[in-house]
Design a protein around this nucleic acid. Sequence first.
RNA 1: GGCAGUGUAGCUCAGCGGUAGAGCAGAGGACUCAUAAGCCUUUGGUCGGCGGUUCAAAUCCGCCCCCUGCCA
Length: 525
Amino acid sequence: MKPYYITTAIDYTNAPPHIGHAYEKVLADVMARFQRLAGREVYFLTGVDQHGQKVQKSAEKVGLSPQAFVDGITSHFTSLWDKLNVRYDGWAATTDPKHKRVVQAMLQKLHDEGQLYKQGYTGFYSVRQEQFLTDKERGPDGKFGEEWGEVVELEEENWYFRLSDHVEWLKTYIKTHPDFIFPAHRANDVLNVLEGKAQDLCISRPVERLSWGIPLPFDENFVNFVWFDALTNYISFAGYLAEECGNADMPDFSKLWPSEAHVIGKDILVPAHALYWPIMLHALGFSDEQIPRLIVHGWWNVKGSKMSKSTGNVIDPNALADTFTADGLRYYVMRDIATGYDADFSDERIIMSYNKELAGGLGNLLNRSINMAQKYRNGLLVSEGYDDAENAALRQTVAEALPAYQEKMNAWAIHDGIAAAWKIVSHANAYVDSTKPFSLAKDPEQAARLDSVLYHLAEAFVHVAVLLNPIMPTAMATARAQIGWDMPEGFVLSDLKWGMLPNGHQLGTPVPLFPRLEIEVSSAA
RNA sequence: GGCAGUGUAGCUCAGCGGUAGAGCAGAGGACUCAUAAGCCUUUGGUCGGCGGUUCAAAUCCGCCCCCUGCCA
């Protein structure tokens, strides 16, 4: 079977990561881990977009070379992914020479085929901001505001890609491939844009204006501008043209492509990923079957408004991970948003999700289960000798959780997948109260029943600790260690059946999995 | 202005033609193995508004309003 190839947007190395960056990478990481658990080979690619004018300017401002500047910002991203247990197989840094060679080879190919052309453009240019201005930048009085400084009329030549040649193909493709974009309703936004006039795409900047980029192989006076650089990472780091570019140690492109999931934010769907990218691939000769699928996620707002540096409401994922642990943060950003829609970040909700659900619900269940087994049976489980309807009902819940979980996870409804697994947690907590093992322990005649209750609790938790592993890999590994059982090498979801713990299994020592946090709502990040 | 999404309990949301649902928050209770955790019960809603179709509408249709997004 073809490997599951999943990518994320590559982050722009102009500022350190915020919660939105973290959410996207965790989402992709959870899916990658789920697919692996489901038995598929997975290739997970993420990375950074390091070229461009903003980087060039920011580097100048602090007196660093562009490469030194992006290396610094890049380390903020890589250390965060490390901290959050985002485990990728490939790292796409656009300053990587391997990537540059692929970009240049692609551009040369398109140039040779006549899909690129050079044309002059006359417009208003801000000397201070070093960019051309459009009517959008005009104020209500029709003039360019003072923030643009001196504005001059300027003519500039640039290279263009014949995007408009492929627009009709794209319209048809979108209409005939409803799975292209998830959630499906976003395809309307794309078709809406395509109804407008089709313009070709400017793909260059004169080298005197922008030097921090990939030079056009056929015209030394220009560097590539954005799209053929950033979007290309999805194929360049998957081994596209690896042989003719002399790129060693790359994945086998013919096996990996197309990607099952380009995980991106809704802000970069139109025009970049839903227009430019499929058209670029089509222009390069990719067939309809070779077009990747887009998974479009929403944004984390703060108190109903967008996160932005200017309003000072940027949420720092590092601080959250320090307070709530990496798994506490991963759990929150997976359970409190429906994939594809926006959600509101709030201190109250992340504290509630940690203290109420992880500490009080999940963690406490593990703790009370092991603790009773240790107290009454020295941690030794007996799986045979007694059964009743209450036990059967718990087993039923456990059995039903797996298919529900798989269906939801496969459909990118991570929050529903968590809820499916959580039914076991809720049922098991209620089961403790209804079977009262602490009372059974006082009556020697109930010994066999007590054994069965203790066994059911531990076994049920094993299932939870497998299902939630993609979401909270560290905590679930710790939980399994306390139970004294772990997934054997090559374990897949279909191996998960009642009876993972053998008769006579020895449990470990209970330690609170998510220690309850005493946090004032107002003082939390 | 065009297109789309959304509007259901204090909060987050599910339901999408057949007697209003879940979780959290609030209230009450029984219990004690456990991280002052967990369990049970319970308060709370003219399902954005108006009109229509139907034996029956939160659910379908029309108009309007709010918020959000994309485009102009």
